[in-house]
């Protein structure tokens, strides 16, 4: 009984890991070996890189008790800007700089509006979802900007092995930031209880703005990776992407109420979504069914992992 209990607690705490293992075994057994092919697994990883990078930033925002709905529009904006700048300058550094700058300005704007005018992040980022989509349509004139397959930007940000090295490197760096730095701790304290954080001498406003900037940086890189991976900067890419990001973070065990979770869980969440999408394609499922199952998985995962006794009020 006792053992059984600890096992259940472990599963509840690591629901995304359990889901990952189950799905992995399921697809391994039911796809006549197609799923387990090295080339397939590598392509799953490659296809998950941009989602991972964006979800790293979103994990910090959600850890802080906030939410970012603008990320889908933002990666599109960053991708188009990157593609355009690269086309005209051929410089990776300038491209990076431009995308990061635009993203930082947008996220700074959101952070400042949220903290100074006390507009909830749900609303601010919802507004930015439209604003950034409008901006990208204006900047691009509604057409895509191709990225040359032989260009350096494609080689580094869009193809193996570099794309994997970048993603893994960023993950490790963000994990270190979360675990070992004051920045990570203060984020957690604000998410744990904003009031107590302020009374403990945390500059809550500053911290919130910094976390938004941090997420902006990661979103910019995510946008470049996305554009390089698909081979173009497109004003229509990333619609509904914010839902994938939130799904990955929440599936990874970061609570929307803030304070609990972290990027390690997010990594598993991203990979779970990755193999789920891949496995369903191998099964020959149409895309609407994939969407349906993705929705069910996230609801079910949260339902199982939530300790209901402690959450009297669920909003």
């Amino acid at each position: 009984m006792e053992k059984n209990n600890t096992f259940l607690v472990f599963i509840k705490k690591n629901i995304s890991l359990a889901a990952f293992v189950i799905l992995f075994l399921l697809f391994s057994c039911t796809t006549t070996g197609k799923f387990l092919r090295i080339s397939n697994l590598l392509s799953v990883l490659t296809a998950s890189t941009d989602l991972l990078i964006c979800s790293l930033g979103a994990t910090f925002i959600i850890l802080m008790g906030s939410i970012d709905l603008s990320v889908g529009s933002m990666i599109s904006l960053c991708g188009v800007i990157a593609a355009k700048i690269y086309l005209s300058t051929n410089s990776i550094l300038l491209t990076l700089f431009a995308a990061v700058l635009v993203s930082a300005v947008c996220y700074l704007f959101m952070g400042v509006i949220h903290t100074q005018l006390k507009v909830p992040t749900f609303i601010v980022t919802l507004g930015m979802l439209s604003i950034a989509r409008a901006l990208v349509t204006m900047v691009s004139g509604g057409s895509i900007t191709m990225i040359d397959y032989n260009g350096k930007i494609k080689q580094i940000f869009g193809l193996r092995p570099w794309i994997l090295i970048i993603a893994i490197g960023l993950f490790a760096a963000v994990w270190v930031v979360e675990k070992f730095t004051l920045f990570g701790r203060f984020t957690r304290l604000v998410g744990g209880d904003e009031n107590v954080a302020r009374l403990s001498g945390v500059n809550v406003k500053k911290q919130k703005i910094l976390v938004f900037l941090f997420a902006g940086l990661l979103t910019a890189i995510g946008g470049i990776v996305m554009a390089a991976r698909i081979g173009s900067g497109s004003p229509s890419v990333g619609q509904g992407y914010e839902l994938d990001v939130i799904t990955a973070v929440v599936l990874g065990g970061t609570a929307q109420t803030g304070g609990v979770g972290g990027v390690r869980g997010t990594l598993i969440g991203v990979l779970t979504i990755g193999i789920l999408a891949n496995g369903l394609i191998l099964w020959g499922m149409p895309s609407e069914v994939q969407l349906l199952i993705k929705g069910l998985v996230v609801i079910f995962a949260v339902a199982v992992s939530t300790e209901r006794k402690q959450n009297m009020i669920v909003r």
Partner: peptide, 18 residues
Amino acid sequence: DKEGLFLIYDSVVNISAA
């Protein structure tokens, strides 16, 4: 509970918060 402690965290995080 509302102003002094982070209830979801352990003693280590709480004691070092300030």
